[in-house]
Amino acid sequence: MSIPVLSAIVRHSFWQRGGLLLARLIVAAIFLMACGTKFADIGATATFIANAGFPMAMPLAWIAAIFEALLVIAFLTGILMREAALLAALYLLFLAFAFHGPQNWGGNHMEFGVFVDHFAFAAGLLYMTAFGPGPLGIRR
């Protein structure tokens, strides 16, 4: 496919509306899966948090699950989405270092991969922070 054809595809009006909505739906689905697993077994989440060395693991597990559920609502509706995207990016960077950082890499390439993936996801969230929900988001 030649570059002019590709350029015409990405400039199509779909990406101005549908592309932004699709991105919001993907991000919402990721956070829905994350909070769903937390709510499904909050004890396991608390254990994971405690094993990382954090005190008050059970309250932190509930806070994380509720926060992620609120992110899902923000991304699905577009309400406060820019603020939610910024908070989510900061949250992901915290998670990257706290749970998948250099202290966990010793011979485990998967942990390094998960660490790097958090940065890619955070970059997308920062892009969403800059451009907002698009024309299909509910306005404040």
Rank of each mutant, 00 (worst) to 15 (best):
M1F: 08
I3N: 11
P4Q: 01
V5F: 09
V5N: 06
V5I: 14
L6Y: 13
L6F: 15
L6R: 08
S7V: 09
A8T: 11
A8M: 04
I9S: 02
V10F: 15
H12E: 14
H12T: 07
S13Y: 14
F14T: 12
Q16E: 15
Q16H: 15
R17C: 05
R17F: 14
G18P: 04
G19D: 13
G19H: 11
G19Q: 09
L20W: 11
R24P: 03
L25H: 09
L25C: 12
I26E: 02
I26A: 14
A28I: 06
I30W: 12
F31V: 03
T37L: 09
T37V: 10
K38E: 10
F39G: 01
F39W: 15
A40V: 00
A40G: 06
A40M: 06
D41M: 01
D41L: 00
D41Q: 03
G43A: 08
G43D: 14
A44Y: 05
A44R: 14
A46L: 01
T47M: 04
T47Y: 00
F48M: 08
F48Y: 13
I49V: 08
A50Q: 13
A50G: 07
G53F: 03
F54P: 04
P55I: 04
A57E: 08
M58S: 07
M58I: 10
P59C: 06
L60D: 04
A61T: 03
I63H: 10
I63S: 06
A64I: 04
A65Y: 10
I66E: 11
A69I: 03
L70T: 11
L71S: 04
L71C: 10
V72L: 01
V72Y: 06
I73Q: 07
A74D: 06
F75W: 05
L76T: 04
G78T: 07
M81I: 11
R82S: 12
R82L: 04
E83W: 11
A84F: 03
A85V: 05
A85E: 09
L86T: 02
L87Y: 10
A88N: 03
A88E: 10
A88L: 02
A89E: 05
L90I: 14
Y91G: 00
F94Y: 13
F94V: 09
F94M: 06
A96N: 07
F99G: 01
F99I: 02
H100A: 01
P102Y: 14
P102C: 04
Q103F: 04
W105V: 01
G106N: 12
N108W: 00
M110N: 12
M110Y: 07
M110A: 14
M110W: 10
G113H: 04
V116I: 15
F119H: 14
A120G: 15
A120L: 12
A123I: 12
L125A: 04
L125W: 10
L126D: 07
M128Y: 05
A130F: 13
A130V: 10
F131A: 00
G132L: 02
P133V: 02
P133W: 05
P133A: 13
G134S: 00
P135M: 02
G137K: 01
R140T: 09
R140I: 12
